[in-house]
Design a protein around this nucleic acid. Structure first.
Length: 476
DNA sequence: TGCCGGTTGAC
DNA sequence: TCAACCGGC
């Protein structure tokens, strides 16, 4: 036994102690081998920039790291932070770090994205003593397969199989081995990268768990009825925590089963709709692992490569800024710009508007979302965009085109959401509010006060233009 | 996790 | 006149 030996927990997108198998494994290993345990976080601003990580997400990471550092310090484990600009630098750093510090084992949680997987594969081929756990999903990618042993390409059968497997699965709660290390004083962690204040989102896994509890107790049963209305807090708002692993999907499942023990076996409990969303999250993560091209800016359906996008720069700018002249679209884009988050229904409406009404390549929108979302996550973001654009796996058919005016009437009928984010419409009546601000309209139908922008496209024209341009998706 | 236009039939 | 329904995109 050599007390100079070190065991490392390398935190990546699993910024929590509870229900984290790499943490419990590291504690167990350190106890057995009687060696020191330290935690590591490597921030990589250049890599983040190339992955379009939003400044608000970087701030959120920093704040969560500091909560993590405090909790680890109470267990006697120091959290060390180093800056390694790119993934390549991470490889070099870890190689050197292991040599210098007598590291006998590193534990880390797997990540599903291509670049991340490539980096991890290189670490292994460099001979580093690293062991990965796979807990960013409830069932690990590659384990939910159809009868041919392949990844499902349709959500519903995937969901069915997933349910069967999870309900037969023995769900085991993770427990920490006591290490008897003395409590220490945590080092303050500061990430040197552009940041935007994320303080509307309380940091730390304790905060995340209490948000989960509150959601389950007060909103889970009304989730199905309320989730589509952007003026209500009807969604879980847990996505930033799930994206960074401050909360794990298994913890969400435990919470569901605590309140609705039959949720896995009966598809009729009030938890069903939210559970289904968690399964969509798994579906998209499994997909990017099974189909690496999804991480490489490619359409899932290769037919879609033939779409002639218009890619008008000025229209893209108007969309980004929330100046399309469609009140609901503009309100949603301004919500994103002002808060770093957008309601799920609005993500579908704005994504449909960009890819179909404006015929702008969905990748432009995917990138813009990622650059601004606190919950930015490659799998979910790509999955959602390709679903909306009709280019994705089990996407909506190309001819299913949202009418932004109808969506607005349906989901923000009283206009609470629109009035909040588009204040220049405050004098417009609720009845006229949903209309696009077309100059050709009669004044009484006008959505519009003088200082609101004119609509950049007319719905009927845009719809038929999109149908024409996107029919290549269905061609053999 | 649509929309649209056309048809039908009750009033 | 309008809700309900349907097929095609």
């Amino acid at each position: 036994m050599d007390s100079n030996n070190i065991v490392v927990i390398w935190f990546r997108q699993d910024l929590r102690i509870r229900e984290n198998e790499s943490v419990t494994s590291a504690f167990r290993f350190a106890a057995e081998k009687q060696c020191r345990l330290i935690a590591l976080y490597l921030s990589s601003p250049e890599q983040w920039q190339s992955h379009d990580v939003a400044p608000i997400q970087i701030d959120f990471i920093e704040r969560n790291l500091n909560h993590l550092a405090v909790e680890l310090a109470q267990l006697g484990v120091p959290l060390k932070h180093f800056q390694t600009p790119t993934f390549q630098d991470q490889i070099e750093f870890l190689t050197e770090f292991c040599q210098k510090n007598k590291v006998i084992q590193i534990f880390a949680g797997k990540e599903p994205e291509w670049n991340e997987k490539q980096r991890d594969a290189q670490l292994i081929s460099h001979g580093l003593p690293i062991e990965f756990t796979d807990e960013h999903c409830i069932l690990a990618p590659g384990t939910v397969l159809n009868q041919q042993g392949q990844m499902f390409k349709v959500f519903t059968p995937f969901k069915k199989k997933w349910r069967e497997m999870v309900s037969q699965h023995h769900l085991q709660k993770a427990e920490l081995v006591e290490l008897n290390q003395k409590e220490i004083v945590p080092e303050k962690i500061q990430i040197d990268a552009a940041k935007v204040k994320s303080s509307d989102w309380p940091a730390g896994e304790k905060a995340a768990l209490s948000l989960l509890k509150r959601f389950c107790e007060s909103q889970l049963t009304s989730y199905k009825e309320q989730r589509d209305f952007p003026s209500l807090k009807g969604t879980s708002q847990l996505s930033p925590y799930l994206a960074m692993g401050v909360l794990s999907p298994k913890q969400c499942l435990y919470a569901i089963l605590h309140y609705f023990p039959q949720a896995l076996v009966e598809a009729t409990t009030p938890a069903e709709t939210w559970l289904s969303e968690l399964i969509w999250r798994e579906f998209y993560r499994h997909l990017i692992v099974a189909f690496p091209k999804l991480c490489k800016n490619q359409n899932f359906k290769s037919n879609a490569d033939a779409i002639q996008w218009r890619n008008d720069q000025a229209e893209f700018k108007a969309w980004c800024e929330g100046k399309t002249g469609y009140p609901v679209v503009d309100a949603a884009m301004r919500q994103l710009n002002q808060t770093g988050w957008m309601h799920n229904r609005m993500r579908m409406v704005t994504a449909s508007f960009l890819s179909k009404h404006l015929l702008i390549d969905w990748r432009w929108g995917e990138r813009y979302f990622k650059q601004h979302l606190i919950d930015g996550d490659l799998a979910a973001n790509n999955g959602g965009w390709q679903w909306s654009a009709g280019t994705g796996c089990d996407a909506q058919p190309y001819f299913r085109i949202f009418n932004p005016i109808e969506q607005s009437k349906k989901f923000d009928n009283e206009g609470a959401f629109i009035y909040h984010f588009v204040p220049e419409l405050s004098s417009v009546s609720t009845k006229a509010l949903h209309q696009a601000n077309l100059v050709v309209q009669e004044p009484e139908d006008h959505a519009i006060s003088n200082n609101y922008c004119v609509a950049i496209v007319e719905h009927k024209l845009a719809r038929s233009r999109a149908l024409e341009a996107m029919k290549v998706i269905s061609q053999k």
